[in-house]
Design a protein around this nucleic acid. Sequence first.
DNA 1: CCAAAAGTGTTGTCCCTACACCCATGC
DNA 2: GCATGGGTGTAGGGACAACACTTTTGG
Lengths: 235, 235
Amino acid sequence: MSRTRFRVTVDLAAITVHDDTLKILLVERGEEPFGWALPGGHLERGEDLDEAAARELIEETGLDLDRAHLEQLRAYGHPDRDPREHVVTICYLAFVPDAATPVAGDDARAAAWLPVAPILNGRQELAFDHNQIVADAVNRARAKLESTTLATRFCSPEFTVTELRQVYEIIWGQPLDQRNFSRKITGTEAALVPTGQQTTRNGGRPAALYRPGPATTLHPAILRSEATELGVPRR
Amino acid sequence: MSRTRFRVTVDLAAITVHDDTLKILLVERGEEPFGWALPGGHLERGEDLDEAAARELIEETGLDLDRAHLEQLRAYGHPDRDPREHVVTICYLAFVPDAATPVAGDDARAAAWLPVAPILNGRQELAFDHNQIVADAVNRARAKLESTTLATRFCSPEFTVTELRQVYEIIWGQPLDQRNFSRKITGTEAALVPTGQQTTRNGGRPAALYRPGPATTLHPAILRSEATELGVPRR
DNA sequence: CCAAAAGTGTTGTCCCTACACCCATGC
DNA sequence: GCATGGGTGTAGGGACAACACTTTTGG
């Protein structure tokens, strides 16, 4: 049973919303192929894929899984995707809050949160097939916001409805009606739990603060009109 | 750069609708671990994952990709999923028409289309983690029917609206109103192309025959009420 | 004629969109 | 006061569920 064996890596497409911009965690490679790439590492023998992804997330962001969301995106295995050798990568998608974004350059590599827009429209070239992976990751993220409450993972532990809505607007690249959005999200059973506190940190009338609720799915879903460019067309 | 390497296999969850039942293609293993399992094979060096899955589909069903639908389901890599060794599997989901179901036992293995219901409710145990994979595959298939026209891939080249509806009913395990379904699917632009022919093969008034249209997505989606058991609660 | 299946019409309901409008703070 | 953002009320419309009803075949 001596069979062809492959290098198997687990890559991480960790996205966050920072400065009204959708950003993704990238590392600068110190070896061929040079350039920016998604963080990732080799799968270790005896380790599950989910474990490897969680390990990678902690190494790169110092974040525990309670605050973030981690799910498998898909596997990539084109023979030419790595110029050195045929490598199979299982890529994971992570939703990471804005607050906890200390980029821990654990190893020698430089790491940074960079905007995804230039990557999607081809103005920034990543190593390997990572442009494609980022596109897949953003599409998956956009779809996830429609049917789940995972947008809360981009927010601080306590957040206002407006802050949550801005996450949607930035990731979908389209403005949403604040009044309808508020009704929708607060009307969904167990989606948000009011803390009883208020804040005026966004100015104007005090807004109620919420924590993520036990519900993870949205019924009915919040539908976006159609795919648009990133960033919010500011009113 | 001598690294841990893994056996990488590509498995196939090929489903079809036959005899008013959702079935999946399984092979009987001639070696440990014995029992029924999803068909699959090793990824070959220089081969893309999609290629390997397509090769597997042709080997097992003799079907070209025009008639079937093939998409990546997800990767599985738990260290104990194969008792012999830590193996990473990329699993693909295939929608296969009822007509073209000649199980080509290419190698010595016995192959068969078996109902998925006993697998889902635990009355039939498959080798490896394939019970879990089948469950994931069925869930993905159910979701796909909501937003795409891929249910046509289970039908013969020319089919009636009722035949298409029965695919939905069997996979979703719930009856659908024929009249509303008909309006919905024929009203969706470019979903179905009428052939101009009619048939009375289902008895009663002649029904129009359709071919799959160029549209692949359904807007708005056909929503199912909730997850149910397999099989149609017959009226 | 009758059973069976295909297809159209219709009605009420739900949910969403689009606004008008009021509320509560900081300055 | 006034600007700014938070939140409720409400009218119109689109889509869908439910069902009555007509159409067209085979026997």
